[in-house]
Write a protein that binds this DNA or RNA. Sequence first.
DNA 1: AATCTATTTCGAATTATTTCGAACCGAGCC
DNA 2: GGCTCGGTTCGAAATAATTCGAAATAGATT
Lengths: 104, 104
Amino acid sequence: MSSTKLERHAEQLSALGHPIRLKILRFVVTAGPEGSAAGEIQSHVDLPASTLSHHLKRLVDASVLVTRSEGTFHYYAANYPTLQALTDYLWEDCCKNGGKPGCC
Amino acid sequence: MSSTKLERHAEQLSALGHPIRLKILRFVVTAGPEGSAAGEIQSHVDLPASTLSHHLKRLVDASVLVTRSEGTFHYYAANYPTLQALTDYLWEDCCKNGGKPGCC
DNA sequence: AATCTATTTCGAATTATTTCGAACCGAGCC
DNA sequence: GGCTCGGTTCGAAATAATTCGAAATAGATT
């Protein structure tokens, strides 16, 4: 519950810091805001369902992905605002301490 | 050696996916292109030198940071082009498959 | 209600990460 | 040479992540 902004963002980067999970993100990013179903993702990454489910949970827990159900299908989509905030965070305060202009 | 773009980027995200290493990155980012010496970083993160050195090595190995020596001082600076390419990678091909405009 | 389909949870083995003291290395100085 | 200062490498223990089969769940279909 109590976690700083630094810790939440580290968790998000860590969630993305695995080849399979990064591949999953990029797949659902291309799929747009509707996202794609777990089964579609599975045939793209070619993994046992239980392993895939673990990775999807990790991404949702870090709120990199959002999920929604339609019948028995579970759709996963990129959480665009979270992703934007994450990439912004890396550059925040860049060259605050006397950097030459143009360093970022 | 043989590693795909996906794997290299996953490694970079994984390197940043640790609270201490993310804190280190943000510290050297504010320090600008000259970076800061290991000792300065150490007093900012308050860690045994050996632990810090391990984290710095991880960041340099992922080429998130670059390093240079001046006498006995070892300076670390953010690798801006690498960081830029990394953040771009996450959004690449966004909504390629029929996303509504404005989704990214 | 039985069954099929889509997906998650459990459990346990394997593998990787994190941590830090102790030993080590290189540069500068007396 | 011998000493100190700034950092790194070694080694080994504690902790966490990854993997996947088997069992469980939940909705749709007959």
